[in-house]
Amino acid sequence: MSLNIDSISIAYGTHLVIKGLSLTIPKGAVTAIIGPNGCGKSTLLRGIAGLLPLQRGRIVLDENPVAQMRPSALARRLALLPQAPLAPEGIRVQELVTRGRTPWLRPFRPPAAADRDAVERAMHAAGVAEMRHRRVSDLSGGQRQRVWIAMAFAQETEWLLLDEPTTWLDLPHQLEVLHLIRRQSSEASRSMVMTLHDISLAARFADHVIALRDGDLVAQGPAHQVITPEVLKRSFGLKAQVIPDPLHGTPLVLPR
């Protein structure tokens, strides 16, 4: 069981961003997509989530072609947290997290017990339960990002795609968010797919790493196989040495 991407092409307008890309994302793991700016990382996530139409190829989720699934059915199995979601003015934490239940709610019925439980679980997992009554606009950047992640958790999908979940956060908050994603993956056995800028953090927190360049696959596999000087050169054009991280043993990138 996995997410299979079979020679897909995705375009923004007339510009082809992803050209005939094929890869497999393993289930129940944390996958990081790395690559230079504009390599198509976000486009790939948006294509998988059905936000962008495929020009060619197909995406198969646990043996079901995504193109044949109704959007409402897909939203119960796969969620995407966009890079810059927008909080309505004055919204409070719990209300925002509850919006993650949208694909499960019935019109005019208040959230059921199962929905309220899911919201509680998500808020506790993301460590935002004690700030549930605060306005999202009053929170710090790190707290706000955890609220958005709680909203994505509350959707309770097997697959969760996160577009740059650590952007604009300082290093301690980046680590906090990545620990959170890692823990949720193992405890709730969810498959997480995220785009990341920091290669060493990707190496440390992801089971599976995908390196892209110009919408094409450079390498995919376990971090220690993908994060090598040769792949970094081909993907980022970066001259770097890779040593084992003395604390964690994962690949550590030292740019020259």
Partner: peptide, 14 residues
């Protein structure tokens, strides 16, 4: 859902 942005709305299947 749309008030959270078009991407969030689509991600909720809307």
């Amino acid at each position: 859902a749309l008030a959270l942005g078009a991407d969030s709305a689509r991600s909720f299947g809307i």
